[in-house]
Amino acid sequence: MKVMIRKTATGHSAYVAKKDLEELIVEMENPALWGGKVTLANGWQLELPAMAADTPLPITVEARKL
C-alpha cells in the first residue's frame, strides 16, 4: 500500500490515503527508519523499503502491512 512518511514535531508519522488514516510511528526496528518494521500508534505494523538514511521527507513509499 502507498504510505506517506513525514517528520513531525514529535517524531515521524505515516499517512495511508486509501484508509484516510494518519498515525504517529511509535516504534522502529531500525533507527534510520528504512528497511524494517515500524509500529503505528493504532497498532498496525508496516514493513518499509530499504532507502538511504538521509532520504528527504515527506516521501510516499510502497509499504507492506504485516
Rank of each mutant, 00 (worst) to 15 (best):
residue 1 M to I: 15
residue 1 M to T: 09
residue 1 M to R: 02
residue 1 M to P: 02
residue 1 M to D: 03
residue 1 M to V: 14
residue 1 M to N: 04
residue 1 M to G: 03
residue 1 M to E: 07
residue 2 K to G: 06
residue 2 K to F: 13
residue 2 K to I: 14
residue 2 K to R: 12
residue 2 K to E: 14
residue 2 K to Q: 14
residue 3 V to Q: 00
residue 3 V to M: 01
residue 3 V to E: 03
residue 3 V to H: 00
residue 3 V to G: 00
residue 3 V to R: 00
residue 3 V to Y: 00
residue 3 V to C: 06
residue 3 V to W: 01
residue 3 V to T: 02
residue 3 V to I: 11
residue 4 M to T: 15
residue 4 M to A: 07
residue 4 M to K: 10
residue 4 M to P: 02
residue 4 M to L: 13
residue 4 M to E: 15
residue 5 I to C: 04
residue 5 I to P: 00
residue 6 R to P: 03
residue 6 R to T: 11
residue 6 R to Q: 11
residue 6 R to F: 14
residue 6 R to C: 10
residue 6 R to M: 11
residue 7 K to V: 08
residue 7 K to Y: 08
residue 7 K to E: 08
residue 7 K to H: 07
residue 7 K to N: 06
residue 7 K to P: 07
residue 7 K to T: 06
residue 7 K to M: 10
residue 7 K to I: 09
residue 8 T to L: 08
residue 8 T to F: 06
residue 8 T to D: 08
residue 8 T to E: 07
residue 8 T to H: 09
residue 8 T to N: 10
residue 9 A to C: 08
residue 9 A to N: 10
residue 9 A to M: 10
residue 9 A to R: 10
residue 10 T to A: 12
residue 10 T to K: 13
residue 10 T to V: 12
residue 10 T to C: 14
residue 10 T to G: 12
residue 10 T to W: 13
residue 11 G to R: 02
residue 11 G to S: 05
residue 11 G to P: 02
residue 11 G to T: 03
residue 11 G to I: 02
residue 12 H to G: 01
residue 12 H to M: 11
residue 12 H to D: 01
residue 12 H to P: 06
residue 12 H to C: 07
residue 12 H to Y: 15
residue 13 S to T: 13
residue 13 S to H: 09
residue 13 S to F: 14
residue 13 S to E: 07
residue 13 S to N: 06
residue 14 A to Y: 11
residue 14 A to S: 01
residue 14 A to M: 13
residue 14 A to D: 01
residue 14 A to W: 08
residue 15 Y to V: 10
residue 15 Y to P: 02
residue 15 Y to W: 11
residue 15 Y to S: 09
residue 15 Y to K: 09
residue 15 Y to Q: 09
residue 15 Y to F: 11
residue 15 Y to H: 08
residue 15 Y to M: 09
residue 16 V to L: 14
residue 16 V to I: 15
residue 16 V to R: 00
residue 16 V to D: 09
residue 16 V to Q: 03
residue 16 V to G: 00
residue 16 V to P: 01
residue 16 V to M: 13
residue 16 V to A: 05
residue 16 V to T: 05
residue 17 A to Q: 12
residue 17 A to M: 14
residue 17 A to G: 10
residue 17 A to C: 15
residue 17 A to R: 09
residue 17 A to Y: 15
residue 17 A to F: 15
residue 18 K to N: 14
residue 18 K to E: 15
residue 18 K to R: 13
residue 18 K to A: 15
residue 18 K to P: 10
residue 18 K to H: 15
residue 18 K to I: 15
residue 18 K to M: 14
residue 19 K to R: 13
residue 19 K to I: 15
residue 19 K to L: 15
residue 20 D to S: 09
residue 20 D to F: 11
residue 20 D to T: 07
residue 20 D to H: 13
residue 21 L to N: 07
residue 21 L to A: 08
residue 21 L to F: 14
residue 21 L to Y: 08
residue 21 L to D: 03
residue 21 L to P: 02
residue 21 L to H: 10
residue 21 L to V: 13
residue 21 L to K: 10
residue 21 L to W: 14
residue 22 E to Y: 10
residue 22 E to W: 14
residue 22 E to G: 06
residue 22 E to D: 11
residue 22 E to K: 06
residue 22 E to F: 09
residue 23 E to S: 15
residue 23 E to P: 01
residue 23 E to D: 06
residue 23 E to V: 15
residue 23 E to F: 15
residue 24 L to F: 10
residue 24 L to N: 12
residue 24 L to P: 13
residue 24 L to Q: 13
residue 24 L to M: 14
residue 24 L to S: 11
residue 24 L to C: 10
residue 25 I to F: 05
residue 25 I to P: 00
residue 25 I to V: 07
residue 25 I to Q: 01
residue 25 I to D: 01
residue 26 V to Q: 03
residue 26 V to M: 07
residue 26 V to P: 02
residue 26 V to W: 05
residue 26 V to A: 04
residue 26 V to G: 01
residue 26 V to R: 05
residue 26 V to K: 03
residue 26 V to F: 05
residue 27 E to W: 15
residue 27 E to I: 09
residue 27 E to K: 11
residue 27 E to S: 13
residue 27 E to R: 09
residue 27 E to A: 13
residue 27 E to M: 11
residue 28 M to P: 00
residue 28 M to Q: 11
residue 28 M to N: 07
residue 28 M to W: 13
residue 28 M to H: 11
residue 28 M to R: 09
residue 28 M to G: 01
residue 28 M to Y: 12
residue 29 E to H: 03
residue 29 E to Q: 09
residue 29 E to D: 10
residue 29 E to L: 06
residue 29 E to Y: 06
residue 29 E to R: 04
residue 29 E to K: 04
residue 29 E to S: 09
residue 29 E to V: 06
residue 30 N to S: 11
residue 30 N to K: 11
residue 30 N to M: 09
residue 30 N to A: 08
residue 30 N to Y: 13
residue 30 N to H: 12
residue 30 N to E: 08
residue 31 P to I: 07
residue 31 P to F: 07
residue 31 P to D: 11
residue 31 P to M: 09
residue 31 P to V: 11
residue 32 A to I: 11
residue 32 A to L: 13
residue 32 A to G: 14
residue 32 A to H: 14
residue 32 A to T: 14
residue 32 A to S: 14
residue 32 A to F: 14
residue 33 L to W: 06
residue 33 L to M: 13
residue 33 L to H: 03
residue 33 L to G: 04
residue 33 L to N: 03
residue 33 L to Q: 03
residue 33 L to F: 06
residue 34 W to H: 03
residue 34 W to Y: 01
residue 34 W to N: 04
residue 34 W to T: 02
residue 34 W to Q: 01
residue 35 G to E: 03
residue 35 G to S: 03
residue 35 G to K: 02
residue 35 G to F: 03
residue 35 G to A: 05
residue 35 G to N: 05
residue 35 G to R: 02
residue 35 G to C: 04
residue 36 G to Q: 02
residue 36 G to M: 04
residue 36 G to E: 02
residue 36 G to L: 06
residue 37 K to N: 08
residue 37 K to M: 12
residue 37 K to P: 04
residue 37 K to D: 04
residue 37 K to W: 15
residue 38 V to E: 02
residue 38 V to I: 14
residue 38 V to R: 00
residue 38 V to H: 01
residue 38 V to G: 00
residue 38 V to S: 04
residue 38 V to F: 04
residue 39 T to N: 03
residue 39 T to S: 06
residue 39 T to R: 10
residue 39 T to G: 01
residue 39 T to E: 05
residue 39 T to V: 11
residue 39 T to H: 06
residue 39 T to K: 11
residue 40 L to C: 05
residue 40 L to A: 02
residue 41 A to E: 08
residue 41 A to M: 09
residue 41 A to Y: 05
residue 41 A to V: 04
residue 42 N to V: 04
residue 42 N to D: 02
residue 42 N to Q: 00
residue 42 N to T: 03
residue 42 N to F: 04
residue 42 N to Y: 03
residue 42 N to P: 01
residue 43 G to M: 03
residue 43 G to P: 00
residue 43 G to Y: 04
residue 43 G to A: 01
residue 43 G to L: 03
residue 43 G to E: 01
residue 43 G to V: 03
residue 43 G to I: 01
residue 44 W to M: 08
residue 44 W to I: 07
residue 44 W to G: 00
residue 44 W to Y: 06
residue 44 W to L: 07
residue 44 W to K: 00
residue 44 W to T: 05
residue 45 Q to G: 03
residue 45 Q to A: 09
residue 45 Q to R: 12
residue 45 Q to W: 08
residue 45 Q to V: 15
residue 45 Q to C: 10
residue 45 Q to N: 06
residue 45 Q to I: 15
residue 45 Q to Y: 08
residue 45 Q to D: 06
residue 46 L to Q: 00
residue 46 L to R: 00
residue 46 L to P: 00
residue 46 L to I: 12
residue 46 L to A: 00
residue 46 L to D: 02
residue 47 E to D: 08
residue 47 E to Y: 13
residue 47 E to G: 06
residue 47 E to H: 09
residue 47 E to F: 13
residue 47 E to K: 10
residue 47 E to L: 15
residue 48 L to K: 00
residue 48 L to P: 00
residue 48 L to T: 01
residue 48 L to W: 03
residue 49 P to W: 05
residue 49 P to V: 04
residue 49 P to E: 06
residue 49 P to Q: 04
residue 49 P to K: 02
residue 49 P to T: 04
residue 49 P to C: 06
residue 50 A to Y: 13
residue 50 A to F: 13
residue 50 A to N: 13
residue 50 A to M: 14
residue 50 A to K: 11
residue 50 A to Q: 12
residue 51 M to C: 02
residue 51 M to W: 05
residue 51 M to Y: 06
residue 51 M to N: 05
residue 51 M to L: 12
residue 51 M to T: 01
residue 51 M to S: 04
residue 52 A to M: 08
residue 52 A to R: 10
residue 53 A to W: 13
residue 53 A to E: 14
residue 53 A to I: 10
residue 54 D to Q: 07
residue 54 D to G: 10
residue 54 D to T: 09
residue 54 D to M: 06
residue 54 D to L: 05
residue 54 D to R: 04
residue 55 T to K: 03
residue 55 T to L: 03
residue 55 T to M: 06
residue 55 T to P: 06
residue 55 T to N: 03
residue 55 T to E: 04
residue 55 T to R: 03
residue 55 T to F: 04
residue 56 P to R: 10
residue 56 P to L: 11
residue 57 L to M: 08
residue 57 L to F: 13
residue 57 L to G: 03
residue 57 L to Q: 04
residue 57 L to C: 05
residue 57 L to S: 01
residue 57 L to E: 03
residue 57 L to Y: 08
residue 58 P to L: 06
residue 58 P to R: 04
residue 58 P to E: 01
residue 58 P to H: 03
residue 58 P to Q: 04
residue 59 I to P: 00
residue 59 I to Q: 10
residue 59 I to D: 02
residue 59 I to C: 09
residue 59 I to T: 07
residue 59 I to F: 09
residue 59 I to G: 01
residue 59 I to H: 08
residue 59 I to N: 04
residue 60 T to G: 03
residue 60 T to F: 10
residue 60 T to M: 12
residue 60 T to E: 14
residue 60 T to P: 03
residue 60 T to V: 12
residue 61 V to L: 08
residue 61 V to H: 02
residue 61 V to N: 00
residue 61 V to W: 01
residue 61 V to D: 02
residue 61 V to T: 05
residue 61 V to E: 01
residue 61 V to S: 04
residue 62 E to C: 14
residue 62 E to F: 15
residue 62 E to L: 14
residue 62 E to M: 15
residue 62 E to G: 07
residue 62 E to S: 12
residue 62 E to T: 14
residue 63 A to E: 03
residue 63 A to F: 07
residue 63 A to S: 06
residue 63 A to K: 01
residue 63 A to I: 09
residue 63 A to H: 04
residue 63 A to Q: 02
residue 63 A to Y: 07
residue 63 A to V: 14
residue 64 R to I: 14
residue 64 R to L: 13
residue 64 R to F: 13
residue 64 R to W: 12
residue 65 K to A: 12
residue 65 K to H: 12
residue 65 K to T: 12
residue 66 L to K: 05
residue 66 L to E: 04
residue 66 L to V: 14
residue 66 L to W: 11
residue 66 L to T: 10
